[in-house]
């Protein structure tokens, strides 16, 4: 039997069913979305970050190695993805000195992970930019950025800037007034007091070589001294020069300049010109 073209249907049958289905589907998706957001936010409570004691060591190639342990305890319901930690050290003028990145693809839920954020700093590159870091304390700026994707689809980023005190290894390096003495019939001695403070985070070991030049620029003698200065202590010593006794040298040795060279496993620097007399 053929159905008539204009069938009278029950009230609301034509439109109500799809509209209601649309409404129910939307409500279900809203519930899922809110539940997911609430669960993610609740998981954030059970996420712990902690920093360990930073370790400073020297590499054989004369670089400073900083290692910062980072403990992440993810006791939440969601895993963390694409965890990245980036550190940029720059000097007071904003010139980049060192940069380090650490990346962990996944930190699963319920796991405790220890990450070592390592970065190297070449003393040569520091001194290339400014030699003041050798003799004057300063402040370096560290920009730290940590990013992660929380609960698979909520990327978050935290960033901070802080100043990092830089202790100069040869802080207040100075040579005092020279004092002359007679060594033997052909040589006289010249003793120059030397002092500096090691403000660096490492014990300092090495040698200082100084060349003595008279007022006309002629080399009169050379001296070398070894040192071992623990961190945050001062070093006081003398540089001894043996000057040949001649009329010319005696007349010009009362004033002149020193050329000082520094040798340590971490750095080699020189000459530092210091006048005297």
């Amino acid at each position: 039997m053929k159905k008539p073209l204009l069938t009278i249907l029950k009230e609301g049958t034509i439109m109500n069913v799809p509209i209601r289905a649309l409404g129910i589907a939307t409500s279900i998706f809203w519930i899922l979305l809110i539940a997911f957001l609430a669960l993610s936010a609740y998981s954030f409570k059970d996420l712990n970050f902690d920093f360990g004691e930073p370790q400073l060591t020297t590499a054989p190639d004369g670089q400073l190695l900083f290692s910062l342990p980072l403990y992440i305890d993810n006791r939440g319901y969601c895993s963390l993805k694409e965890f990245s930690l980036s550190t940029i050290f720059s000097d007071s003028e904003g010139v980049e000195i060192s940069r380090a990145n650490t990346f962990v693809p996944v930190i699963p839920s319920g796991k405790n992970v220890t990450i070592f954020h390592n970065f190297t700093m070449s003393m040569d590159s520091v001194l290339e930019n400014a030699e003041q870091y050798l003799f004057d304390d300063n402040n370096l700026t560290a920009s730290v950025t940590a990013g992660l994707t929380f609960a698979e689809l909520l990327p978050a980023q935290i960033s901070t800037n802080f100043t990092f005190p830089w202790g100069a290894p040869f802080h207040n390096f100075a040579l005092g007034q020279p004092s002359f003495g007679r060594f033997n019939s052909t040589y006289s001695t010249m003793s120059v007091p030397m002092s500096f403070e090691n403000h660096a985070a490492l014990d300092l070991e090495g040698s200082i070589r100084a060349k003595l030049f008279d007022s006309v620029g002629s080399s009169l003698g050379e001296s070398q001294t070894l040192f071992f200065v623990p961190q945050q202590t001062s070093c006081n010593g003398n540089l001894e020069f043996y000057i040949p006794l001649s009329t010319a040298s005696l007349s010009t040795a009362n004033n002149g300049h020193f050329k000082v060279y520094f040798f340590t496993p971490l750095l080699e620097y020189g000459p530092l010109v210091i006048p005297y007399g």
Binding site: T26, L154, P155, A156, Q157, I158, S159, F162
Partner: peptide, 21 residues
């Protein structure tokens, strides 16, 4: 000294889509 940025773009997109529905 800390600045926190939370990217809710995906949540935002889904929420706006559901609101439009």
């Amino acid at each position: 000294n800390f600045s926190l940025t939370l990217n809710l773009t995906l949540f935002y997109t889904i929420a706006i889509s559901l609101s439009l529905l």
